[in-house]
Nucleic acid binder design. Structure first.
Lengths: 216, 216
DNA sequence: GCCGAACCGTACCGTACGGTTCCGTTCATT
DNA sequence: AATGAACGGAACCGTACGGTACGGTTCGGC
């Protein structure tokens, strides 16, 4: 029986520390390797060399390679923070600005090399194992963001600024208007066009169209 | 120097036969293996066994494993056919029906297990090699569809049914409204909800919103 | 100053898989 | 019937990598 692997399925999403500082440093190295060279660049020997730790420690901390990958995903997810939304529905203009800021932050996260590398990793493994990484990314990433967005949109509806039946549906439309097919194209290795790199105006346009569909 | 690999970079996108019947059978087996078990399930030995051919033939036909993967992508791309659009802008109603049919076909392709497996494969390899598969999928898949869509939308504009400045931009919005985040969620291994499986009504809703943004 | 836990570095093992080679068979052409 | 290209089948090799074991070192607690 090996040492206890890092089992993400049983860990609470809000567990705060989760990794020791030393482990976080190692995970950051792992993330760097992943971003630079894709999954195949992240070997246990390579990580041990890069992070100046022993393979034995890696296996002690994370159980096996899958546990390491899960830990990397969990670690990165814990790093992503969206701006707070305190008092964001004061009036129509600030609420709309807040929605725009949310979309811009969403674009910033999804189009970052780190997020792309992690998505590529999870997708590449999504039909091999029992799909742990994909679920992990969805639960700790997308679903969290989606919940955040729904409360924001519902707040707008309560204040009479937006009109829709299903908050999830409305959020999906906002997502689609903002992301379009850029995400999948970036995942496939295409470079973003200059216009697509201007996240602020991309968010602006998306929110404009969103208001034309769901504005009160 | 090995035998000439299948070099997709130099082959014309409209080259018709491209693979012998025997090779197509083998590629279909490869596709099945990919859909069932992901990339790691497609080994040269496994494919040779499944397709009752020799590894020597595989290497003779496709050069190396990368050539095989590229051939699988090219083969599948050649299989996808969209409905013709002859006389589709006769009047407003039939044009809109045609747009809806296009969106439904797009959803049908993108959400098929075959397409998902190929996208997973290409994405998984997108930062290892010089990114051949990703480019291949983009060029033979997305860009072809995008071109088709643009001519369709521009035809609608010429007939005064739609209003937009940039056809590419309009198509991207249509894509976003239809796909939202379903594609990435499926790629990550999540199952589509019953509503998301009803491609017809999904397409209907998307086109409805599209017309509210771009209808003349 | 001693002890044990944690850890680094490295050597090692087993295996899976890409790629090569050889041989026997089939089959079309002459 | 003879011949040779095309191909199936199987054995083989090299290597990369996951995983393990072990000796040596650092460091905090008593």
């Amino acid at each position: 029986m090996p040492a206890a692997a890092y089992d993400i399925a049983t860990s609470r999403p809000d567990a705060a520390p989760e990794f020791s500082p030393r482990q976080q440093v190692v995970l950051q190295h792992a993330l760097t390797l992943l971003v630079e060279g894709g999954e195949k660049a992240l070997t246990t020997a390579g990580l041990a060399r890069t992070a100046s730790c022993s393979k034995e420690s890696l296996y002690k901390w994370f159980g096996d390679r899958d546990g390491l990958l899960a830990a990397v995903v969990a670690y990165q997810a814990s790093q992503v923070q969206f701006p707070s939304e305190t008092g964001a529905t004061a009036d129509a203009a600030t609420f709309r600005a807040h929605v725009t800021a949310f979309v811009e932050a969403l674009l910033g996260v999804l189009f970052s090399e780190t997020s792309l590398a992690l998505n590529r990793l999870s997708i590449g493994q999504s039909n091999t194992n029992s799909n742990r990484l994909g679920h992990l990314l969805l639960v700790r990433g997308k679903h969290m963001i989606s919940a955040r967005a729904r409360t924001m949109l519902e707040s707008g509806r309560r204040h009479g600024l937006l009109k829709f039946d299903d908050a999830e549906d409305a959020y999906q439309v906002l997502y689609g208007l903002a992301i379009r097919d850029v995400h999948i194209r970036l995942l496939l290795g295409e470079n973003a066009s200059p216009a697509e790199k201007d996240l602020a105006s991309q968010a602006e346009t998306a929110v404009d169209r969103f208001y034309r569909l769901f504005g009160a």
